[in-house]
Design a protein around this nucleic acid. Structure first.
Lengths: 121, 121
DNA sequence: TGCGAATATTCTTTAATAGGCATATGAATC
DNA sequence: GATTCATATGCCTATTAAAGAATATTCGCA
């Protein structure tokens, strides 16, 4: 994928936050809602955006849709995600997301990223 | 500057190219025209865009405006520019720009980045 | 002071984007 | 089969952005 295309994906705050959280591991939409504190539509649409552009994939687990980073990213994408992870350290929005994600960890650990049991995904 | 803001600057092909070329050193608008092969308005506007957001600075040298990368970039900006330089290697557009820039090198060497003499800038 | 060269700005059109609301889909459960 | 939960999509609006044409500015020089 072209470099510009990647940056088009990265030039929206919500998408940056989604990708940043996904760097920690797969997650379902409802957990994204908890972590980002943003409405379902917003999250769902941006995930769809990222999916159609090949940055993330998703799989259905019962009622839940689990999103994860593309398994075989291009080197360019990989570089940019690494850069994101690095830069995000400095900004409160991202740190807050991570804090909420970690607070959610016990739940995720017991239910899996999709609430469907620890082994399922 | 916020990470999103940086990415907003990077999500346009022309601006990516401008920054990528600037990583090689300062340059004036007319040389940018030669290197990118894009109309003056387009280049001038995008440079203004980058200037107002603090990614580049400029100084007048006679009739010429010499643009250069911000001298004291934030660590986040620095990381992203490094990433750009890295990724650009893989894409023909950027390589072509560099090729034309280097073909221009003798001119720049004899006139300076602004055509105003080698020592002036 | 008037002209030409390099660059910037204004204006307009066109296209893309995000966001929200309402609604649709799809799976699970009763 | 109806309901419910999780998620996706369609439609609408408001905002933003890019590009080009034309014009303005700023400087150097005759």
């Amino acid at each position: 994928m072209e470099l510009v295309k990647i940056h088009e994906c990265l030039c929206d705050r919500t998408r940056l936050r989604l990708l940043h959280v996904l760097l920690q591991g797969p997650l379902c939409v409802c957990h994204f809602q908890d972590v980002l504190r943003e409405p379902q539509v917003k999250i769902s649409k941006h995930l769809a955006y990222l999916r159609t552009r090949g940055l993330v994939t998703c799989s259905r687990e019962g009622n839940w849709m689990v999103y994860r980073l593309e398994a075989k990213p291009t080197s360019v994408l990989r570089a940019n995600l690494a850069c994101l992870q690095d830069c995000a350290r400095e900004e409160p929005v991202f740190r807050r997301d991570l804090a909420r994600l970690h607070r959610l960890a016990p739940v995720i650990a017991s239910t899996g990223p999709c609430g469907c049991g620890p082994a399922a995904c």
